[in-house]
Design a protein around this nucleic acid. Structure first.
Lengths: 151, 151
DNA sequence: TATTGTTATACTCTATAACTATA
DNA sequence: TATAGTTATAGAGTATAACAATA
């Protein structure tokens, strides 16, 4: 069955079933992952912010809010919590005194490294229930999902 | 860089980087999808429950809680909300008087059908930013992600 | 005694609106 | 006047603990 008639003129408009399947799976999987806290005291978004800082080096609260798709006041709270835990450091912006610069601490690096094993253990165990072909498909799709999340 | 040394003896143990990428992407994407409510009055889990019922036909609250990876009291609340909106019907279990049977109504079918276009519009627009090859990879991975969410 | 579902309650995360400080 | 960030407040969603009814 095709939903092509319902779709605007999109390249992949006739793949509505796949789109539905994708949405449902991502939502359910995320609910399970949410419970697999590396560190019980860190929320998924806090972890994600640390991951982002680990990649980017540093960022302003506003940049982080946009990257994580969260409102500025929420990011204020998240950054404050991370700072209280000694995982990020806040410094004045060199050019604009309204802004601040958030950087992750060495403690965050250690924590991220240390917790990677635990985090991977859960996901790897889940992924281990797949056969070689399924895992290959997932591995190929991972970067595309990342792109989609950023689009 | 390889994390193989950190992994237990799993089939796909040496793909920790892909696992990390997958986790991060799923979490971020889910946060965006959460905001794309089909019907403003329905939460993602409520939508997911209706989807499940649309597939399975009917289920007990306990079964739904397990399927949606939610605690029983949460499912009680969700089912009550759906019932108040006329989207599910609760009937006594034919064999076990402790249990109940939840079924989605005709109104839910209409709603699901009607809202598919809106839901797909957002996702399809997002997916439309991908090229043919990327979308093919995602399409191939969708069923695997579903399996993973259920594992 | 174990299980299904519910009630009562509290917590976490996020949002909106209003405010301050700087540009 | 516009922008970055914060404070105060409210709301949504979920969890845990204690309870009721049935097996």
């Amino acid at each position: 069955m095709s939903y092509a008639k319902d779709m605007p003129d999109l390249k992949h408009g006739d793949d509505a079933a796949a789109v539905n399947s994708l949405r449902s799976a991502v939502m359910r999987l995320s609910r399970r992952l949410k419970h697999q806290r590396v560190d019980e005291s860190l929320s998924p978004t806090e972890m994600s912010v640390l991951g982002t800082l680990s990649n980017c080096g540093s960022a302003t609260p506003g940049e982080l809010a946009r990257k994580e798709h969260v409102q500025p006041p929420s990011m204020t709270r998240i950054v404050a919590l991370l700072e209280a835990k000694g995982l990020v450091r806040l410094e004045p912006h060199p050019e604009d005194r309204r802004q601040k610069v958030v950087t992750h601490t060495e403690q965050a690096v250690v924590m991220l490294e240390e917790s990677r094993r635990k985090r991977n253990a859960f996901l790897a165990a889940l992924v281990d229930g797949l056969d070689e072909d399924e895992w290959a498909k997932l591995r190929a799709a991972a970067p595309v999902l990342e792109k989609l999340a950023h689009l």
